[in-house]
């Protein structure tokens, strides 16, 4: 049973992820995005190891961190805004951790929006990437032509 709008709590934890970055994940991402840059294909200066595209880990983690919560507790939605801060490259073999949180909710022009954040770190606690995204909640009467 979805939450009512008043029951949607700012600060709520929305999901957790622990992810080991592998070569196979990178291969799949590069093909899907038609992305061809040397740092992602093989170890390449200035990096000693192959690294992941910077938005790959957030993409692979979004269901566990945000979307399962959204579909279960709030309902259908589409992305309205997206921001990333990239702190450090993520080499293959890195185990990445993040906790998703609902950090803001607001209504504008009759539409409802929820904003989530997740800070990805490695085993040592080193910051890797901050993902902040705002989702537009699709109500029963939503029509994109009137957006």
């Amino acid at each position: 049973m979805p939450l009512t709008w008043d029951e949607v709590k700012v600060g709520a934890e929305t999901g957790r992820v622990d992810l080991l970055v592998t070569d196979a994940m990178i291969e799949e991402y590069l093909e899907a995005m038609e992305l061809d840059l040397r740092w992602f294909a093989a170890p390449s200066p200035p990096y000693a190891a192959r690294i992941a595209p910077p938005d790959m880990v957030p993409k692979l983690s979004m269901n566990a961190l945000f979307q399962e919560f959204l579909h279960r507790e709030i309902g259908p939605n589409i992305r309205a805004k997206q921001a990333f801060s990239f702190y450090a490259p993520i080499p293959v073999g890195t185990r990445v951790h993040a906790v998703g949180r609902l950090v803001e909710k607001y209504e504008r022009r009759g539409r409802r929006f929820v904003t989530f954040e997740a800070l990805f770190t490695d085993d040592s606690g080193k910051k890797l990437v901050l993902d902040r995204r705002t989702q537009l909640v699709l109500g029963q009467d939503f029509n994109i032509e009137k957006k």
Partner: peptide, 25 residues
């Protein structure tokens, strides 16, 4: 991701460490 690709090609490691992007759809 396509916007990130453009920034990566322009800045390379300078986007991977210290890069920021913020967009509205």
């Amino acid at each position: 991701g396509y916007l990130n690709e453009m920034m990566l090609k322009a800045l390379g490691p300078g986007f991977l460490s210290g890069g920021e992007i913020s967009v509205t759809f």
